[in-house]
Amino acid sequence: MRTVNVIRAQLRASLSLAVQYRLDFVVEGLLAILWMAVTLVPLLVVFQARQQIVGWTFPEMLLVLGWFVGLKGLLEGAVSPSLMNVIEHVRKGTLDFVLLKPVDAQLLVSLAKIEPWRSIDLFGAAAIFLYAFRQLGRWPSSTDLLLAAAMLGTAVVVMYSIAILVVSIAFFAVRVDNLLYLFQSIFDVARWPSSIFRGTLAIVFTYVLPLALMTTYPALALLGKLTLPTTVGALVGTALFAAFARAIWRVSIARYTSASS
């Protein structure tokens, strides 16, 4: 119950923080729409010349892009700002206050700051899905939807775990802002289906930085093309990855020495 209350109170505080500045709210909202439009450009360029790429047609590829837009919104709207906040805490030594609270520190830092205008991305993603399925001329079955929801869950967990790993490094290295930006840039790769990549890159983006898990698998699920072994593998892999990130976070917290006085 306490956990739920804390989450609610944090969301409340970060929402009030976000709407504190009205002009920001408008400008950031407009920027979010603009960015979404820009995201579509590479896809439109590529499909002007050909019908499909490595087995993916334009509407199918749009599904991957839909997930990408939605997750990017989540990453830049909730995960990154909160974790940048932790890095700031570590640098200034105010993480002390977080660690002194009788609540899990990871929970406290994870929702500390959100940018609600990025929820426009979620609407954008929904619009892209609708358009894609109209182009495909069919709608996903309820099983597909359920599976896609599960895959979305794993995608969010994986993304968050990667971010937590990056932030854990902050306890040792202090300045890791750039690492978080690097992750955001690498995440751009997830706009393409993972089968586009061959050889080493394919392995890297499936197992090392599981970008395939984030956008390709949910898209496959919506198309009814996700196989059972892949689903189970994704679920187990995600659980392991999250546990690993959590373990590293705990080790880092213990190593925290706090800025002097």
Partner: peptide, 20 residues
């Protein structure tokens, strides 16, 4: 060092701590 949320009124930090 301070734990009050910088851009919000203190009452917001109070509510957050009440939940915590």
């Amino acid at each position: 060092k301070q734990q009050l949320l910088w851009d919000l009124p203190p009452s917001e930090t109070f509510l957050l701590n009440r939940a915590i």
